[in-house]
């Protein structure tokens, strides 16, 4: 529990540091909202002439997009700095975490907050609420409690996949392209239901880079579309997938720490 306390304290400090730049936040939040509205408009235009995309109507597609975004918003809030791990290793700034008498992992993940993630969260929640109303959904209390669980699983899935990819730089010195790759798969899964793609793609995003568990499989349950898959309960597996990835990531991190040698910056 000491770790958690330390983490919360570090995040608090980062938050205060960030709040120094208010204009930056307003500009960033504006851009993020704009970007998402345009993405949603594109989906809207695609569907407007065709009524639905493979049986997904416009609000169901918005729901799919926003469910991914909600999980992602927590990722972008707390873990965006994974992109910079390679830079930390090249410049030797990673060494600072090794010098302090606390867990390197906790220090590293608590390094920074990117509070533009709040804008993602704003768009995501608005979208989900509007979709809920327009689709005339009536979730049982069970499904309601399922939602936050799915969102957190989504955050953990994205976080662990990205951290493992970022750890590649402990061996090769470069990892941003691997993170780009995850992002590219994520973009497709966020925008379109994976049932429009061919089998190999569905296998990859289910079994290898399981980003479909961030939105697609939970959405099947939440939107009552389980007839789309032969395994109707697969959406309930998201938390398990997340936990497995957490386990795998801790192993990768352990080896990365053993491997680490400073660039001597």
């Amino acid at each position: 529990m000491d770790g958690l306390r330390l983490y919360i304290r570090l995040v608090g400090i980062s938050m205060q540091a960030r709040l120094q730049y208010r204009a930056d936040f307003i500009m960033g939040a504006f851009s993020v909202i704009m970007l998402n509205v345009i993405n949603l408009a594109l989906i809207g235009i695609i569907v407007y002439r065709f009524v639905a995309l493979n049986g997904w109507n416009i609000w169901q597609l918005f729901f799919l997009y926003c469910l991914w975004l909600l999980g992602h918003s927590l990722y972008s809030l707390f873990f965006w700095h994974f992109w910079d791990l390679e830079e930390d290793l090249i410049r030797g700034t990673f060494d600072q975490f090794l010098l302090r008498p606390a867990s390197v992992f906790i220090q590293y993940i608590g390094r920074e907050v990117q509070y533009i993630g709040f804008a993602d969260m704003f768009v995501a929640i608005t979208g989900i609420v509007l979709a809920y109303i327009n689709l005339d959904l009536h979730w049982s209390p069970l499904l309601w409690s399922f939602l936050p669980l799915m969102v957190i699983s989504g955050t953990l899935i994205e976080m662990t996949l990205n951290l493992m990819m970022a750890c590649i730089s402990f061996w090769t010195g470069r990892s941003s392209i691997a993170l780009d790759m995850i992002m590219e798969f994520n973009m497709l899964v966020q925008h379109y239901p994976i049932d429009i793609f061919s089998t190999w793609f569905r296998v990859v995003v289910t079994g290898f880079l399981p980003v479909a568990f961030m939105n697609y499989y939970p959405a099947l349950i939440l939107l009552g579309k389980v007839d789309k898959t032969s395994v109707p309960w697969i959406g309930f597996l998201s938390p398990i997938v997340a936990l497995l990835l957490v386990g795998l990531t801790s192993i990768v991190w352990h080896f990365a720490m053993r491997r680490y040698s400073s660039s001597g910056g």
Partner: peptide
């Protein structure tokens, strides 16, 4: 970075593949 180069070729193709299926299904 030659490795990045090959991955980026793959990612470009992945984007093409994505939009291909969208239009094909529609």
């Amino acid at each position: 970075y030659r490795f990045n180069f090959f991955v980026e070729i793959f990612l470009t193709f992945l984007r093409m593949y994505g939009i291909y299926w969208v239009w094909r299904i529609l």
